[in-house]
Nucleic acid binder design. Structure first.
Length: 471
DNA sequence: TGAAATGTTGGGGCG
DNA sequence: ACGCCCCAACATTTC
C-alpha cells in the first residue's frame, strides 16, 4: 500500500513556479491530487473574471499534464467537495495557498474547521503576496494606513526567494473522477463578448513568465516616465496573471529588483512600487475587510452619493461624450483591462462629476475586468472617491479633457477605442460594438454623443456637495 | 498619482 | 532715465 495522498486545493495560485504550497506538499513525498473547485463563492464572480478564470484553469490543467499529473475539477460547496474527495481517495490532508479577502477568508475558515473536525490535516500556505499582511507593522505594532511609509517599510524587508517549478509531481494510484471544464460554462455570461476579448488575453504561467522577461528586458527602463501615457505599451501587463496566480508576486519582485540593481533603472523602482501597491491593498483588506463593502472612512457613508442611475448606465456604456472617459470604458469592455491612469479618470468622473457611489463603479469593474482583484479594486475605488485610507481628497477632481491633453497627446488612445472619432476605426474600436449587448442598441455610424455634463459645471456641483457635507 | 484661482515677479514696450 | 502698465511665467493657495 502506498502513502495516503494529499489534496492540493488550487484557487488563485494556478502555477507551478514560485509556489510554497506545492513545494511543501512535494517535500512530504506523498502522492498529490491537484484540485480546483467551482464553489458558490467563485460562481458569484463577474462575467469577465469568471470567464478569464476558465482560461486560466485550462492552462494550468494542461501544464500539470505535461508533468504527468492532472487537475481534478469538482463543483459544489468547498467543504462538501473536499469531504467527498477525501472519502474517495483516502487523502488525509488538504493544502492551499492563503487568500485574504473577506469572502475567501470566511469560506476558508469554515473549511479548515470542518476538515479538522473530521480529523484531517488542513494546511494553509503563503504564496499570493510578498509578505503576509500581519507581518508588516508600524513602529507602534499597528498596520499602515498610508502608502509611503508602508513602501519604506516593505522596501527593506527581504522577500522570500521564488522557488523553482518542480520537474515531477507524484501521482495517486487511481485518479478520482473529474468534471469537464466546458460543462461549467464559465463564459456563459460573456455572451458574444468572449470572442472579442479573447485576443487580448495572455493566459497561463508560460505566457506570464515570458511577459515578465520581455518587460524586464526593455520597457521597465522607461517605466517611470512612460507608464502614464495611455496609448503606450509601457507597462508590464501582468495584472491579469497576478490575479489568478499564473505568476508569483515574489518572482516578479525579484525580477524587478535585479533590473534595478543591474541597470540602475529608475523605472524598475517605480515598477516595484506598483507591485507594493498591490501588497498595500492586501494589507488593507486584511486589517480592514470592510473596505470591500463600505466606505473605509465611515463619515463618507453619510455623503449624498447617488446610487445606480441612468447616468451611471451611460458611463458604463462608454457614451458620456467625454472622449478619454469613453475610450477607457470601451477599452475595458473590449480588452478586459484598462490603463491605470484611465482607471483614475473614469473613477473620478463617476464619483465626482456624476456624484455616484464608488460601489457602482467597483461593481462594474468586477463585472468587466479580466484582471479583477478584490483588494486592488476596493482600494482603488475608495482612493479615487476620497473615502479610503491615504486617498485622494474629494476635492481633487480630475479634468478628463486636461488629462487627455497630458497623457494622450495626439488622441491615439481615444481614437483606438472610439470608432466614432476615426474615419477608419480599428479592430479595438469596432470590437466594442461587437461585444456590447444588443439591448444597448449601439451603432458605430451614429455620431459621437455630446458631453452628458459640462465639465466645469460637474466640478462645481461636486465641490458644492463636498462643501455641504462639511457644513 | 489635480485643477483652478489667486498672488508674485520680472522683462519689455511705451510715453 | 524713469515709472507705469501689461502679461507671461511661475509659485502659492484653495477647493
Amino acid at each position: 500500500m502506498t502513502d495516503a495522498p494529499l489534496i492540493l486545493w488550487f484557487r488563485r495560485d494556478l502555477r507551478l513556479d514560485d509556489h510554497p504550497m506545492l513545494q511543501a506538499a512535494l517535500a512530504t513525498g506523498r502522492p498529490l491530487i491537484p484540485l480546483f473547485i467551482l464553489d458558490p463563492e467563485t460562481e458569484a464572480q463577474g462575467a469577465a473574471p469568471k470567464w478569464r478564470l476558465g482560461l486560466s484553469v485550462a492552462a494550468f490543467a494542461a501544464a500539470l499534464e505535461t508533468l504527468g499529473s492532472r487537475l481534478v475539477l469538482r463543483r459544489g460547496a468547498a467543504l462538501d467537495v473536499l469531504a467527498a474527495l477525501v472519502a474517495e481517495t483516502g487523502a488525509t490532508a488538504v493544502h492551499w495557498s492563503r487568500l485574504y479577502d473577506p469572502v475567501a477568508v470566511a469560506r476558508d475558515t469554515r473549511v479548515k474547521a470542518g476538515l479538522k473536525a473530521a480529523g484531517l490535516e488542513a494546511v494553509s500556505h503563503a504564496g499570493h503576496l510578498l509578505h503576509e499582511p500581519w507581518t508588516v507593522t508600524t513602529g507602534q505594532g499597528g498596520f499602515y494606513r498610508v502608502f509611503t511609509p508602508f513602501w519604506r517599510a516593505v522596501r527593506g524587508v527581504p522577500v522570500a526567494p521564488a522557488l523553482a517549478a518542480p520537474s515531477r509531481i507524484p501521482v495517486p494510484d487511481l485518479w478520482p473522477a473529474s468534471e469537464r471544464l466546458g460543462d461549467w460554462r464559465l463564459g456563459a455570461a460573456m455572451n458574444r463578448g468572449a470572442a472579442v476579448v479573447l485576443p487580448y488575453q495572455e493566459v497561463g504561467e508560460a505566457a506570464a513568465l515570458d511577459k515578465l522577461a520581455r518587460f524586464l528586458a526593455g520597457p521597465v527602463a522607461g517605466y517611470a516616465t512612460r507608464r502614464d501615457f495611455a496609448a503606450e505599451a509601457a507597462t508590464s501587463g501582468l495584472s491579469e496573471n497576478l490575479t489568478y496566480g499564473e505568476i508569483g508576486a515574489r518572482r516578479v519582485w525579484h525580477g524587478g529588483w535585479r533590473a534595478m540593481e543591474e541597470a540602475g533603472a529608475a523605472g524598475a523602482e517605480t515598477f516595484l512600487k506598483e507591485l507594493v501597491w498591490r501588497e498595500f491593498a492586501y494589507h488593507l483588506i486584511h486589517h480592514t475587510p470592510h473596505i470591500t463593502t463600505a466606505s473605509w472612512r465611515p463619515e463618507w457613508d453619510d455623503f449624498a452619493w447617488r446610487g445606480d442611475s441612468r447616468d451611471a448606465e451611460i458611463w458604463r456604456r462608454g457614451m458620456t461624450g467625454e472622449p478619454f472617459v469613453d475610450a477607457a470604458m470601451r477599452e475595458m469592455f473590449v480588452t478586459g483591462r484598462m490603463h491605470n491612469r484611465a482607471r483614475m479618470i473614469v473613477g473620478s468622473y463617476l464619483t465626482k462629476h456624476l456624484l455616484t457611489h464608488w460601489k457602482v463603479g467597483a461593481d462594474w469593474f468586477a463585472e468587466c475586468l479580466t484582471d479583477w482583484d478584490p483588494a486592488s479594486n476596493a482600494m482603488g475605488w475608495q482612493w479615487v472617491a476620497g473615502s479610503g485610507p491615504d486617498s485622494a481628497p474629494f476635492f481633487r477632481v480630475f479634468n478628463p479633457a486636461t488629462q487627455a491633453e497630458k497623457f494622450d497627446p495626439g488622441a491615439v488612445y481615444r481614437r483606438r477605442f472610439i470608432a466614432e472619432l476615426s474615419p477608419d476605426p480599428g479592430p479595438a474600436a469596432l470590437g466594442f460594438f461587437a461585444a456590447a449587448p444588443r439591448s444597448w442598441n449601439l451603432d458605430p455610424k451614429r455620431p459621437y454623443p455630446a458631453p452628458m455634463i459640462d465639465l466645469a459645471e460637474g466640478r462645481r456641483r461636486a465641490l458644492a456637495a463636498y462643501a455641504q457635507r462639511n457644513a
